[in-house]
């Protein structure tokens, strides 16, 4: 399996990269989605712009109550970052659930969100975290919410020549319980379904519930009906079951050789119940 020939450039700065991308180049990050597609010739880019040598894109830092994850931060650096584990444990959990160690050592945050695989793990967490995606283009930067960034399977709001520069997530408030639960496809590790949950309590009630779901449909989404059912409830086992039953409401579930639509919906409710229970127990 040999990809079609291409030109390769590895700029050292984002400014240089932007010029090359403007000229029609395609970004290469970890290559964990792009290279397999190139080997199958499902992708035949003529000019690859390797973002891997741009030091300014590889960071994880905290500023003003938020964590900023640079586009080329690898899944394993997010998974193992003391900062992310302490301040945004849901994101660390989602990163650690991706594929296998070798994939996590090279695959990146920016590549994962830009690729927008319907079975990717980050979208569930980023929806539940109400994350922001910072996009750099020829005309400057714009910031898009995760809810608006993902448009359809393998489709985002990124225009040609634009790149994801960083992903911004909130520092989790004390007392928030989080959990990411996933049913992996056994060979690849991709999510058949994955559910990310954040729960906060106050005065004996659930005061905040955020539920992100991946794998079920073409894009990760927030299960608003389930969130509403949970908020204001006492968060008993019964409340959780009722909310979990709502996570698939109004969703067009995908069907493939790994799982039928009906089975996926069933799994989504089961994994939602488990993730809500786990998150609530930590809240």
């Amino acid at each position: 399996m040999i990809p079609q020939t291409f030109e390769y450039t590895a700029p050292k700065t984002l400014d240089e990269a932007m010029v090359l991308l403007e000229g029609g180049g395609k970004p290469l990050a970890g290559g964990m989605s792009l290279i397999p597609m190139m080997k199958l010739r499902l992708a035949t880019p003529e000019h690859l712009i390797d973002l891997g040598r741009i030091k300014d894109l590889d960071y994880i830092r905290e500023a003003a109550g938020e964590l900023h994850i640079g586009a080329t931060a690898t899944h394993s650096s997010v998974e193992n970052s003391a900062l992310v584990k302490a301040k945004c444990p849901l994101l660390a959990a989602a990163a650690g659930a991706i594929g296998d160690p070798q994939i996590r050592n090279v695959g990146t945050m920016g590549g994962s969100v830009a690729h927008a695989d319907p079975a990717a793990d980050y979208p569930a967490a980023l929806q539940a975290l109400e994350a922001k995606i910072v996009i750099r283009g020829a005309k400057g930067e714009r910031t898009v919410s995760a809810a608006d960034f993902f448009v359809d399977a393998f489709t985002t709001t990124l225009d040609a020549g634009e790149v994801v520069r960083e992903v911004v997530v909130p520092v989790e408030q004390a007392g928030t319980g989080t959990s990411y639960m996933k049913m992996p496809q056994p060979a690849s590790g991709f999510a058949i379904v994955g559910v990310a949950v954040r729960v906060r309590r106050g005065g004996g009630k659930i005061t905040l519930a955020r539920i992100g779901v991946t794998g079920l449909s073409n894009i990760g989404y927030r299960a608003s009906a389930a969130e509403k059912a949970l908020e204001g409830s006492a968060g008993t086992a019964d409340d959780i079951m009722k909310a979990a039953a709502l996570v698939t409401q109004g969703v067009d579930a995908n069907s493939d050789l790994h799982a039928s639509a009906e089975y996926r919906k069933h799994l989504a409710s089961v994994y939602a119940a488990r993730a809500i229970t786990a998150a609530a127990s930590k809240a």
Binding site: L28, G31, I35, G52, D100, Q102, I103, N105, V106
Partner: peptide, 21 residues
Amino acid sequence: GACTIEVNGKSVKSCSMFAVQ
């Protein structure tokens, strides 16, 4: 994973990486 090697101390699948990287 049969092609696993280490690049700069990290295990990677060398069938999914270009030599130029």
